[in-house]
Design a protein around this nucleic acid. Structure first.
Lengths: 348, 348
DNA sequence: GTGGTTTTCGAAAACGTTTTCGTTTACGAG
DNA sequence: CTCGTAAACGAAAACGTTTTCGAAAACCAC
């Protein structure tokens, strides 16, 4: 059972392929009668245009590529969902690739997407990515590229992000407002922009409040997988190193949950002994005990916004307009829960 | 900067397109010298074959479609990861569509994938899907189709599943072995095969142990979203209806976690007052307090196995061999944690 | 009946490959 | 020098569309 082609329809109706094609696309120079005939037969034969042929002609694939560091991840899977939902609305399909936080992978995958002739590419960078030639290649080919969440500031293209620095500042400020005097920070890996910005927000909040910034309170983990285990390890280390810390701002909810678990096991009371603020607002954070105060990071919204921007650029390209890059900053919000104390009114 | 074509390479070298194509594919009737020349130029020009043109000629897209009810879901995102990983190994790309548990969506998406001429389709059914014509259509077109997890037993195609019934039996048996005398079941929606099978396993375990099967202890939720809220609601209802229940086997971890939260809030002690077994082994289950005893459902493995089977069928199709359907059943495992008591030796 | 316009249709080229089947050239054997 | 063969290359068709341009047919006004 081979798929039906225009040619077969044409032969059955004794007209030309051209006429069939035009009839299906409602060209004005085809009579109503012929159109009706063609459309009816196309329907009964269940005709579907061959996407390859269409793409070859029109040079449009109606397909975009998405490269993401990790799929099994609440935030990223929310982003994926947002992207797919928005793409579907506009009639686009999404090819998803996972870089596994590897720069080499990322490079290969970009090449793969380019040779697939996708109309545009959405990407959230791997932690290890420090060289951006593969990205500028895309832009040089006039292919729309939108980065989201884990971006490279240097690369000239549209970006959809949150203000990590501001959010981290708010998180740290909240620890201060609730009475914490000595605040540590688990920052995860060294490299990614998010880590840097969140760290800077943390630091600035301390300084703005005339508190000491102590580098030994910043825990780096070069394993770089933002894992549960990382949280446990860091928490253990913190208890050994510093017995005076009464608050921690943690880079990622998952790490925060690891820390909470470790503290629970060691009998450290949260938030009485140590207050904790996480980052991302995974679902899990509302379920763990104590529930985790955190920064809500709108993944679904980010996915939608990223595709919308990509779509806009694809349209601009089609209309031979110049592509204008935009940086879209999405709102975050502090979600107060049990892992931090009540705000002390009047004291601060 | 338009992509390089065979023609351009040919013109630069003053040879024919044919020769270029053959040289790149190492045809034996091209001299070594020419091959070297062509390959070198192709490399420096960064030539990438136009996928559309290749597909149009060869009728192979090296692309498969994946339809899944929900992306933001630990189990499903694990499956996606497994599928993508395996597909990449074999040089295939994956287009992901989300049905949102809607039958209508599912139908449309199948059509979309067919008109995109994907080489095969992987699908996990929406809860609402009860009519399978869209699936038999795919098979009738000789397009390989593999169903996983949420399947329709009636449809003749390959399937990758776990033995829900056996796993549910094991879960229930574990409650019995740890001393539970009156065991309830939260089964979620009525329709999907998984729910049915898990229910049957629960029931059989009761009967095999000479325990009463009481339909009023089976909680159905037609909201069908397997949600946290569903778990809370059911738990609340259970406390009202039956004060003698001392164990619950719950269809899904997320619902179980909802129930645990509700019980925690109401001061019901787990496992002393009520023991709970969930299903899926989400990461969250190892983190909630008390940690949740559950059935481990190997999502990543399932994804890999599903793509492998699809790949096998695509090869069979290519080689004009008959396609042989297989039903692959993956192993599950009971993960014992704090939400159930220790096994009473010698008592049962 | 003529000229012009409108309506309706089709031929053909193009998109970039792959592959079949010739054709040309070179070469060695007789 | 001729013939046969092998090596190296190319012309052309095909995949299924879309779109440009021209042609035929039909209609209208005079």
């Amino acid at each position: 059972m081979k798929p039906v082609t225009l040619k077969e329809i044409a032969e059955q109706l004794n007209i030309s392929v051209t006429t069939v094609s035009k009839a299906l696309k409602d060209y004005p120079d085809i009579s109503k009668k012929t159109k009706a005939l063609v459309k009816e037969l196309a329907l009964t034969l269940n005709y579907r245009p061959n996407a390859f042929a269409v793409n070859l002609r029109t040079k449009e694939s109606k397909t975009v590529g998405l490269i993401i560091p990790e799929i099994v991840h609440h935030f990223f899977s929310s982003v994926i969902k947002g992207i797919i939902a928005q793409a579907e609305k506009k009639g686009y399909l999404v090819i998803i690739l996972q870089s596994n936080e590897s720069y080499e992978m990322e490079k290969k995958q970009i090449q793969l997407l380019l040779s697939q002739r996708v109309d545009g590419i959405l990407i959230s960078l791997a932690n290890g990515t420090a060289d951006y030639n593969h990205l500028t290649d895309v832009i040089a080919q006039d292919k729309p590229l939108v980065m989201f969440d884990k971006i490279a500031k240097i690369v000239k293209c549209s970006k959809v992000i949150i203000d990590d620095r501001k959010a981290a500042y708010a998180a740290t400020q909240h620890l201060i407002d609730t009475g914490c005097k000595r605040i540590a920070h688990f920052r995860g890996a060294l490299l990614p922009q998010n880590s840097i910005d969140r760290f800077l927000g943390y630091k600035k909040a301390l300084l703005d409040n005339n508190m000491l910034y102590d580098p030994s309170l910043v825990y780096i983990c070069e394993c770089g997988d933002n894992s549960f285990e990382e949280g446990k390890m860091n928490a253990r280390q913190l208890l050994k190193d510093h017995n005076d810390v009464d608050g921690i701002f943690i880079n990622t909810d998952l790490v925060a949950i690891g820390a909470i678990t470790e503290f629970n096991e060691q009998g450290v009371k949260i938030p009485e002994d140590i207050s904790i603020v996480g980052f991302s607002n995974w679902f899990m954070s509302s379920v763990i005990s104590p529930t985790l105060t955190t920064i809500d990071q709108p993944g679904y919204q980010m996915g939608k916004a990223a595709f919308k921007q990509l779509y806009k650029e694809m349209q601009q390209l089609k209309n031979k307009e110049p592509i204008v890059y935009e940086s879209i900053v999405l709102k975050t919000e502090l979600v107060k829960r049990q892992s931090t104390k009540e705000i002390l009114l009047g004291e601060v």
